[in-house]
Design a protein around this nucleic acid. Structure first.
Length: 572
RNA sequence: GCGCCUGUAGUGAAGGGGUUAUCACAAGAGGUUUCCAACCUCUUGUCCCGGGUUCAAAUCCCGGCGGGCGCACCA
């Protein structure tokens, strides 16, 4: 039983039992696209439900839902269009492919601002050699667009759009609505689960790198001057932390979140709080706590929008895989959307404890003089005058306009007036802390960590020790014999349990009872209820616990009660 | 995108120019007082797709698609 074969056995089982399968297989399949089968879709639903509940149960976070089709302008503002239109250069000699901007990093301060032709000419003029074979024979740079383009509108004059590469932009678009919903008080957050799309060059590793994938993202809006944090001391677990290798705390650490935050390893208290709650979520649905670590991004690998980022990595058959990214996105997105869209709604009001007294002098433009002199430009001159921070000591003076030109202002064009008022607060752009979860990757690791092969002797016996919160079926009903009235009795229990909202029940009457237990164990059904001869006499059934095969006999009424309340465990 | 390896029932495998493609497990029907993958009978179901070579291709060749690994990429 070598470890690499375990991966094969797990993926075979997932196909065979309808958990996760390649998509469109009868047409040859498509790399990077997967289906969740009948069993897998149940697991996925439960993981997402658990995730939504985990974050919204505090009352300060709400769920939203926005389109996957996103107009280009939104993604220009977010930076994705620029970031995603990287160019690739191919060495004609050895066929190696490199990012064009990386090739000329040494000779240009901002290579990612260049277009294809500029990149080619710089590569040519600087004689850049292929890092692989040292030749200088480059093909023209080709854009590598990692977003799926589409068009809104069926006709040729449709609007350019992309399938969203992340769900986060939906939360930013709704910031004004969220701000009103939360009575204009920070902090608050919004979550969204749904599909994201990235046209990966080469998807690999099963459900780890997909082209269409399930994300669950949370944007938590805070006042940067008053960053909130929950009670970190409630989590006593020692966590594996890998701080920024270029920073002062380089080197693996093992400590609580509270300690790491106190020492400044985690730089932001709100980030620390979300790391702790992320840890709580993952372990709560069945991720092995010993296979979780948090790795801080070095400055050089940080996403274009983030100033501090921790990846939560989970260990599985593919090694350590990033499953959650917790980033401090600061005010980047809201500010960028405000300037690109021209709105002024992406802000929050910060009330001063005591109003600030503003007294000073201000220039008031005299319209009747400015108008005739500057004509079309009069409006611009007036607003430039009003916005002057410092009043020049004497007239006339040169006033700079937005277009770069200067005009002369004489003393008849403006009057100086005294200003006295109280400032009760100020507008600012909230900062955003974003935990972003890769749901498919988390599901993979849940399956990986639950997949236990512990057959006696030579025989392999597979149990999927899934946490009850995410099991595909809650209970499997098994008539010991599929006759003599046991079949009818089983059916009646099946129907009655199925009627309970949110409960999924499996009914299995084929094959020997041992085989049925094995089938149920393999897809992680935690409880098996058996109807036998005694049931027909006194209405009691046996309940078998998946993880240790222990059975108890209870009245079927008690079964209904405990299934409804999710307290079967208390019967043991 | 590149290189190497690879693709046979639901799953895992054997076969490697020539009768009707083989096996195990799984699945379906029936039988068996059947509580931890028991047994018996019967049944269903497979050569990734497209070209080429050949009298004959699952087998050899080419291309595509998919998978694994390495390089590159992974906001």
């Amino acid at each position: 039983m070598t470890e690499s074969r375990r991966l094969d056995r797990l993926t075979s089982m997932m196909r065979r039992r309808g958990i996760v399968l390649p998509s469109f297989e009868i047409y040859g399949g498509v790399a990077g696209l997967i289906d969740y089968g009948p069993v897998g879709a149940r697991i996925k639903r439960k993981v997402i439900d658990a995730w939504i509940h985990h974050w919204t149960s505090g009352g300060d976070i709400v769920e939203i839902d926005s389109p996957t089709i996103t107009p280009k302008s939104v993604l220009v503002a977010s930076g994705h269009v620029g970031e995603f239109n990287d160019h690739m250069s191919e060495c004609k000699n050895c066929k190696s492919v490199f990012r064009s901007d990386h090739l000329i990093e040494a000779v240009h301060p901002n290579p990612d601002t260049l277009d294809g032709k500029q990149l080619d000419s710089l590569i040519e003029s600087n004689g850049v050699k292929c890092p692989n074979c040292n030749e200088k024979d480059w093909a023209d740079a080709r854009p590598m667009n990692l977003m799926f383009p589409t068009t809104i509108g069926a006709m040729s004059n449709g609007r350019e759009a992309y399938m969203r590469p992340e769900t986060a932009q939906g939360m930013f678009m709704l910031f004004p609505s969220l701000y009103r919903h939360f009575k204009q008080k920070l902090p608050f957050g919004a979550v969204q689960t749904g599909r994201g799309y990235r046209n990966e060059i080469s998807p690999r590793q099963g459900m780890i790198r997909l082209r269409e994938f399930n994300m669950a993202e949370l944007e938590y809006f805070i006042d940067p001057q008053n960053p909130p944090s929950g009670d970190l001391s409630s989590n006593k677990s020692e966590i594996c932390l890998i701080p920024d290798p270029e920073g002062e705390f380089a080197g693996d650490k093992q400590m609580t979140f509270e300690e790491a935050c106190g020492l400044g390893i985690i730089r932001h208290s709100t980030v620390a709080w979300f790391m702790s709650r992320t840890y709580g979520f993952l372990t709560g649905i069945g991720i092995d706590p010993h296979k979780i670590r948090f790795r801080q991004h070095a400055g050089s690998e940080m996403a274009h929008y983030a100033t501090d980022c921790w990846d939560c990595e989970i260990l599985g058959e593919y090694g350590w895989i990033e499953c959650v990214g917790i980033a401090n996105r600061t005010c980047h997105d809201l500010e960028s959307h405000e300037s690109h869209s021209g709105t002024n709604l992406m802000r929050s009001w910060r009330q001063f404890e005591t109003p600030k007294k503003i007294s000073g002098e201000a220039l008031s433009p005299v319209g009747s003089v400015i108008g005739p002199i500057f004509r079309q430009r009069a409006g611009e001159v007036s607003s430039a005058l009003s916005n002057l921070d410092e009043i020049p000591p004497s007239f006339p003076f040169k006033l700079a306009l937005n277009d770069g030109s200067e005009v002369e202002i004489t003393n008849d064009m403006a009057t100086i007036s005294k200003v006295d008022r109280n400032l009760h607060g100020e507008w600012f752009t909230p900062h955003v802390i974003e935990p972003a979860f890769g749901i498919d990757r988390i599901i993979w690791h849940l399956l990986d960590h639950s997949f236990v092969e512990d057959g006696k002797d030579e025989e392999e016996y597979v149990t999927l020790r899934l946490n009850e919160a995410i099991c595909p079926y809650d209970v499997s009903i098994m008539p010991l014999f599929d006759k003599d009235g046991m079949d009818v009795y089983a059916r009646s229990i099946f129907d009655k349990l199925l009627a309970i909202r949110g409960i999924q029940i499996d009914l299995d009457s084929s094959g020997s009872i041992g085989k049925r237990y094995a089938r149920a164990d393999e897809i992680g059904i935690p409880w098996a209820v058996t109807i036998d001869h005694t049931t027909l006499q006194d209405g009691t059934v046996t309940i078998r616990r998946r993880d240790d095969q222990v059975q108890v006999r209870v009245d079927s009424d008690d079964l209904f009660k405990h299934v409804s309340s999710g307290t079967i465990e208390s019967l043991f």
